[in-house]
Design a protein around this nucleic acid. Structure first.
Lengths: 199, 199, 199, 199
DNA sequence: ATATAAGCGAGACGGTACGTCCAGTCTTGGT
DNA sequence: ACCAAGACTGGACGTACCGTCTCGCTTATAT
């Protein structure tokens, strides 16, 4: 649909707030009414553009090599890379605003976008649990949300989202922060052969 | 300032997007120009109202009883309670939108609001580290962001933020998700030497 | 058009300067943009209202009974009567201001309004010339302007425009002021040869 | 007063409508309140500037050489010249608008400006009547108003005010337009040795 | 093959809010 | 004590969009 492509272009040029339905219609060379016939709001247009892949979302890659930490690192790296593309962070912010403004958009996004993205992440975590890499009593949904939450907050607060930061987040989520007084041998520390894991 | 109180009231009544500077001026019984003289944007008004305490942010209580987990539970409970107040979640969403719309607002919020809130949280974490309750190599800033991030995404995605959910988040962050003490054989550790583990 | 009627009413109530486009739109129950779509300025609205007859201009009646002086007297009387109507003088002043403010309005008024009004007057004068009642070398356009000019200045200077005053103007224009028939000696004519008489 | 000079400058630069009291105060380097202390309105400022000679009015010269027509021609020429100066016509229009907007300004102008200007013209006409050059029953005030009225209307209608036009006006007012059937000898025509009198 | 209708572009419409300018009043601080 | 400086409420400016509403002009079916 020309409207979605026009919306994408204008979103990049102007940002979400300055984006107007009128401008989308004009740019797309279609009537305003046609837009209203298909979408309820500005947020709905952007959401659909994302879900339809016209705006390519800050996609990420989740694979399963059997090594949980490595896979999650790879995933976080791909997220960082996706957001580092021009307009990547702006798009995530736009989606956040669209979601905050419109409950329907929120639902569509969490079901659609996260339905692809988060589900893949969850699957990897489930596999990790089955492989005994993840404690059985951990809530995997919470884990996924915690990981993405750290990313979202970083972007919303306009802090630079670097690979290092991603590593630190991963370290917290994988290892927790509590010191284990019962495990002074550092049995699992030795296994952590990544000296830069918490740079 | 009457403007800030009017902004607060209208924010609760209408939400951030529907909030207009004209309405704030009318409600406050002041001239529109006066608002423009003091604030650059709608976001700036809300930010100042929050920082000045006219809008009381979803504030929280952080105390130090020496028991880290209990203190963090108490803190998260207070956050949940604050957001459960009428307009609490809407306010957080409004702040997120304000921050996403206006870089200056982002900075002011992260420095001001988190400067009080997050700093207190960080202090508690530092105390915990000194007390040996937190691993020395953990990045405390990341920890704080991860905790708040989980809260923020939950609210932004309009999922119910319950005490249970808060407990689960805390469990992940405190304990991590990796199973360790029961798995001293390092069954999956062999993979750790994958050369591409941190690509 | 509702806008023109609203403009007319408000012009009478408030006067030209206090008249606002916003008030016209509100009174007419139309959007402000609609007004801007059709007219460039406040002056243009008033001008069109006059030309369309929504505001009926201080119209006058010019007939041809063959008796020049009587016809002009009748015309002037009708002008006086028209201006004596409530808002009549105010309207003329408003038109003067509109014309003074906006060159386009000036043109429209002189071509449109005077195009009807002045043309009729000119026609009567032409008929008078053909009938030998008016000197052949008199510039009729100048004559018409002189008559209306006397009326306009009177109104602009807020002097009472009475039938008596109209009669006096007519006397000047019809007869001239120079005493002639009784002064055939040309007592002051000797000066006529002054070389600088028309510097 | 600096305010009057600032008003004059801004009047030339911007025109009457675009002239603002705020701009006058700023330009004059004085407080707005000071202006309101001395003048009631924008019109009042302009009027006083004219009356005080800060804005020099389209002044004219009326002399008495004994030759009525020549003197009036000379006067009209000086009026034409004054209005031909840059901003001359604009000033007259501004005064017309000021007068139309503000009754007090009208009075001040007609008493002040015309008190100098018109009085001199009236005096010349009175002298002409005493010399028998003007019919005894002519209303001299009306005559003066008719002459100035023709000038004012010409300027307001944005028609070019030329010497030729002034001559034609003078011809009408001096000679009248009616042909004199009882004076076929053309006694007074011969005296009119100005072949270009009605160009 | 022609009539009917459905979808579309275009854009006018009544509105709301924008951000700016100025009116006219009031307060403050320096001379 | 005055006055420049300028903040204040109020209100109009002219613009941008909103979401609704006709308009004609395609196309595309259904008679």
């Amino acid at each position: 649909m020309a409207a979605l492509e026009a919306a994408r272009d204008l979103l990049v040029e102007l940002g979400y707030e300055a984006l107007s339905i009128e401008a989308i219609a004009t740019r797309a060379g279609i009537g305003k009414q046609t837009i209203y016939r298909w979408w309820r709001s500005k947020a709905a247009i952007i959401v659909e553009a994302v879900l339809e892949g016209i705006i390519d979302p800050p996609g990420s890659v989740i694979i399963d090599t059997g090594h949980l930490r490595a896979d999650l690192e790879r995933w976080l790296d791909s997220v960082v890379a996706a957001l580092a593309r021009p307009g990547g962070e702006a798009l995530l912010r736009a989606l956040a605003v669209a979601g905050a403004s419109d409950p329907a958009a929120t639902r569509a996004l969490t079901e659609g976008l996260s339905g692809a993205e988060q589900e893949a992440l969850l699957n990897r975590l489930r596999a990790g649990r089955q492989a005994g890499q993840i404690r059985a009593d951990v809530d995997l949904k919470t884990t996924a949300d915690t990981l993405t939450g750290a990313v979202v907050v970083t972007v919303l607060s306009r802090a630079p989202l670097t690979t290092e930061r991603a590593r630190k987040v991963l370290d917290v989520v994988l290892n927790g922060i509590e010191s284990k007084p019962t495990d002074l041998t550092g049995s699992d520390r030795g296994l952590d052969s990544h000296p830069d894991a918490r740079l």
